[in-house]
Design a protein around this nucleic acid. Sequence first.
RNA 1: GGACCUGUGGUGCAGCUCGGAGUGCACGCCGCCCUGUCACGGCGGAGGUCGCGGGUUCAAAUCCCGUCAGGUCCGCCA
Length: 570
Amino acid sequence: MRDMLCGSVDETLVGTSVTVCGWVARRREHGEHLAFVDLRDRSGVVQVVVDGSVDVRSEYVIKVTGTVTARPEGTVNAALPTGKVEITNCTVEILNAAEAPPFQLDDRNDIDEQVRLKYRYLDLRRSQMQNNLRLRAKVLRAVRAAMDRQGFCEIETPLLWAPTPEGAREFVVPSRLHPGDFYVLPQSPQIAKQLTMVGGFDRYYQVARCLRDEDLRADRQFEFTQLDIEASFVTQDDVMRFISEAVLDAAEAATGERPSTIESMTWTDAQDRYGVDKPDLRFGMTLQNVSAAFAGTDVKAFSAPCVKAIRVRGGADFTRSRLDALTEQAKGLGAKGLAWFRVTTDGLDSPLERFLSDAEKLAIRAVDGAEIGDLILMVADDFATASKVLGQIRLAIGAPPVSQGPHRYVWVTEFPMFEGLDEDGNPMAAHHPFTMPHPDDFDLMETDPLKVRSQAYDLVLNGWELGSGSVRIHRSDIQARVFRSLGISDEEAENRFGFLLGAFRYGAPPHAGFAFGVDRLVAIFAGEENIREVIAFPKTQSGSDLMTGAPKQITERQIRDLRIKIQPKA
RNA sequence: GGACCUGUGGUGCAGCUCGGAGUGCACGCCGCCCUGUCACGGCGGAGGUCGCGGGUUCAAAUCCCGUCAGGUCCGCCA
């Protein structure tokens, strides 16, 4: 139907006849003898010159045949890639008329996301969405190629899976052939991919859709896409190399530049210096431990096992109301308060200044090489709280927009095996219950489980958790010890994961794996704060699809066939 | 489950503190004019349940209560 894309019409084609198809982006009429039509397709825009009037409106779909012509002297448009040429002596065929669109597609105004999502098919015509989704395709191509090159086999795993009541809430699918029984949609192909290891596929990968029925966020949708991998006879370092290769290839494909390194730090380090398990390395303002200087303090506010501080460059001009707001935020995060000190030519300016000893003042003055005009913020509490609170304050003050700054990748290793206690007082798995404990910490499992490190690791980019992985337990004696630590009885384990444990009795190879979120990676490459911008048809925060109206009621007939009953609203 | 922000012709905003006629701006839309524009220009026009419901008031886009929708966050996301 066409022999050329709008964006590829250029001066090398002058004099030739071309046929292009697309949408009317804009029309400029100059009386009955001349009109210009900007014709848009996925590749860009080209100017069509019509002698006489032409009855086309915005978003009409047209086919234009004409001659590529160099634009007359003085009418070249430098802002347009095709601005040196135009198509003249045209015949215009209207392939389809269009109603006036509900919003302008020209990026002139911001458009309410509600409207964009209702008419997503129109929103997708805009260059932002075209670019984002094509970038996503590039990333997917790159990661598939990287895994293929490294000898991985792409294997599809079921979407209809068995309920395993653990972790994220699952989407449930009623069975028609087995009334009263249910499938669930997988929150990840975790168990399936481990079974491919038992099945002798020593390198598995999948671009896998995962589904979790948990509340949505800017970086979370019900359904999201992961590059999911698993490999046998490998170490943690091998897995990190496989994933690095895929991520760095993706970065190169997306940005044209291959990042030189992926840094690495332990989980404890990340907590200590950044107060989070997903540190944003684009900016400094790291957490400074000043506990020693306040060990014997008389100041009540600082009498705590851990005192931490951050230096805010040039922060001395923060207004009192901003400092109050930060204090409120700190309290909301569990701190008793937030101490602030302006570094001035006269020393320290703060309500707490007069209570401090000279040594304490010197310690504060020296935080992170503070200079006059800076602000020092401090939290005193236990290590975990002080770190967490100051880590969040650091982000609130310093985190640049997603679109800004370099891409700083970092592996976070040696995650704790267990985190916190459940209602029964049992430790909870930090990653998942098939994670191999750190070999040096095996003996702590029964005595001090919360101190046990695991062989689990995360990949973090600019403060976003891209993904996580671990070395898995392949021996039933270790698995039994972990289940025991988690308070899972043999019977319960058999009931929940019986088919997996059964499989492991038939010669499970040592194996390890990883999965990272493609949506998040693409969003960062695209400079988007929100993964909906890199998903063709996303849902709102309340889980609605504004275009289709989903979720919706099903017919009485469907309900009857499934033998389910709808309870009235409480 | 909770906190905060937003909702005004088709689109984006202003108006809301301090109540006084649906007032304004930009874009779009419709009609007419315009032979070199490119965010073309000129003239004219249409288009409104101020999200919805209730309350206060002589009078509510504006104040109060509730509710719905969208967003950001907390909880949640092994």
